[in-house]
């Protein structure tokens, strides 16, 4: 009797935990379905292509063109990656291939701090340091006038926010390269740097790409820090010194007004759906690649 009781408990616990596990998984599906259903009204009103390629955003007049926001997101993310990738790659190479463990002991906590800071703090930093830098230093030196709330400022802030993610991913990937592979090149007389380029990077190229894609998805979704420095103008930016308006900023800025108009709400949910969909795809791709690399 006693024994049966224990087994029964075990069984019930198993079922219960299975339900918890599966339902937490279903969150992904629920998000996709929920956001899709919410964006159905706007998709019935306008075609997908029209929404994505139209440049005019006047919700009250029924004009929902997402093109400026898509471009804003794209420019800002590319710039952020352009800043973050070289810095992170060099740093990760230094930490895995050159550095003594004493150096790592001091650098890792720095990365922890950078990774842990909330995005609103990055936003404050952007407003206090980067925006004035752009308006007082960069713009005058190019003989331009700028408020500082620009693609450039947003890209810099966003780039800094993804550096810790990139560095930790790169370090993890590089550490999977066996000591022997490195020694094979070194024993032929290759320098450390040649070994890094020809063995380490070559062998981990898929992982490096996956890490970059993951970082890209992170830059796409960053919200508060972006709002605070991007300028929030619904235009297609034509230079680094133009304001921009990435998609997350659009959603967050208008959540208050959106209830005034059903189609407005649907349009914003559609924006969230696009974001979800792209980020999901990027994440799925890079996680699968990274998993395969790390299991090898």
């Amino acid at each position: 009797m006693m024994k049966n009781n224990r087994l029964l408990k075990d069984r019930i616990a198993e079922q219960l935990m299975a339900v918890m596990t599966i339902s937490s998984l279903l969150l992904v599906v629920a998000m996709a379905v929920g956001l899709y259903l919410k964006s159905v009204p706007i998709l019935q009103e306008h075609s997908l292509w029209e929404l994505l390629s139209e440049g005019e955003w006047r919700p009250m007049a029924g004009r929902f063109g997402f093109f400026p926001f898509l471009m804003g997101t794209l420019y800002v993310s590319l710039l952020a990656l352009g800043i973050a990738i070289p810095i992170s790659l060099l740093m990760a190479i230094y930490l895995t291939e050159y550095a003594h463990s004493a150096v790592k002991r001091y650098v890792f906590p720095l990365l922890d701090i950078l990774a842990g800071l909330p995005s609103v703090i990055y936003g404050v930093w952007g407003m206090l340091v980067i925006v004035p830098w752009v308006s007082d230093v960069v713009a005058p030196s190019l003989r331009r006038d700028s408020s500082g709330y620009t693609v450039l400022a947003t890209g810099v802030v966003l780039g800094v926010t993804v550096i810790p993610l990139l560095v930790s991913l790169f370090i993890e990937i590089f550490s999977n390269v066996g000591r022997e592979s490195r020694e094979a090149a070194l024993s032929l007389g290759a320098t450390r740097w040649q070994t890094t380029m020809d063995v380490v990077l070559r062998q981990t190229a898929p992982g490096v790409i996956a890490a970059v894609v993951l970082a890209a998805s992170r830059t796409l979704g960053e919200t508060i820090a972006v709002i605070m420095v991007c300028g929030n103008l619904a235009i297609v930016p034509s230079s680094l010194l133009d304001a921009c308006y990435p998609i997350p900023a659009l959603i967050a800025n208008n959540y208050g007004e959106m209830l005034s108009l059903p189609l407005y709400e649907s349009a914003l949910m559609f924006a969230a759906f696009i974001l979800f969909f792209v980020v999901l795809g990027f994440n799925l791709f890079s996680r699968l690649v990274l998993r395969k690399m790390n299991n090898r």
Binding site: A30, G34, L35, G221, E222, T223, I251, F276, R287, R291
Partner: peptide, 22 residues
């Protein structure tokens, strides 16, 4: 499950917010 948690980890909080709101 592990892949799904990896993905959920990567979903931006603005999307969580919008989803939670709906």
């Amino acid at each position: 499950a592990r892949i799904a948690y990896d993905i959920l980890f990567g979903i931006p909080s603005i999307v969580y917010g919008a989803f939670g709101f709906t």
